[in-house]
């Protein structure tokens, strides 16, 4: 391909969505992922880029109450969406109980996968509460919290430091405290 063969026409577009309660208006290159919009255009670098291919889960954010891999989603597709990132879950001075539990159970080491793990962990508890079954659910009509459910549902979030069993302890404690 040469420069002359490149596609013609509009390559950017306006989009408006809500991030952590604040409305954001952006004009973005259509190729910008939701992850890069958050990190590079809004300055919210808490969501991490581990693979940019939906293979690691470090970019997990909540969109309209569901967790997604934000690297697999183009920003301009999110017109009107409500997005919550790790920065919207809690701050260093006002931790969410899940963040606090991760600290006390040492559910992380290098910290790079951690925001994605915490977003997923909160979503997992909500999914179980809503009765959404998983691959390991024995009775599809009665979804209940268990270690197996957590391990299965968290498996899209890789942690190479290997803090999985500590994360399970943290998630268990948050569930028990509710």
């Amino acid at each position: 391909m040469t420069i002359h063969d490149m596609p013609k026409g509009r390559t950017d577009g306006a989009v408006r969505f809500v991030v952590n309660g604040k409305t954001v208006n952006l004009t973005l290159d259509h190729r910008v992922t939701l992850l890069d919009a958050l990190r590079e255009h809004i300055g919210l670098t808490g969501s991490k880029k581990g693979c940019d291919h939906g293979q690691c889960g470090a970019c997990t954010v909540m969109v309209n109450g569901r967790r997604i891999n934000s690297c697999l989603s183009l920003a301009v597709m999110h017109e009107g969406d409500e997005i919550t990132t790790i920065e919207g879950i809690g701050t260093p001075d006002a931790l969410d109980p899940m963040q606090d539990a991760f600290i006390r159970h040492d559910g992380y080491q290098c910290g790079y996968c951690t925001p994605g793990q915490i977003c997923s962990a909160k979503a997992v508890l909500e999914e179980i509460r809503q009765g959404i079954p998983s691959h390991v659910t024995a009775d599809l009509d009665h979804v209940t919290f268990s270690d197996a459910e957590v391990r299965e549902r968290m498996s899209g979030n890789l942690c190479r430091c290997g803090a999985y069993s500590n994360m399970l302890n943290a998630i268990r404690e948050v569930e028990a405290g509710k």
Binding site: T45, E87, G90, L95, F102, I103, Y108, G111, T114, P115
Partner: peptide, 21 residues
């Protein structure tokens, strides 16, 4: 002792290399 940088890492506030805007 819990990690002293724990609050930064769990809230996404710890700056990694590509994030040094």
């Amino acid at each position: 002792h819990s990690r002293v940088e724990g609050r930064l890492k769990t809230t996404g506030a710890a700056p990694y290399a590509y994030e040094r805007q």
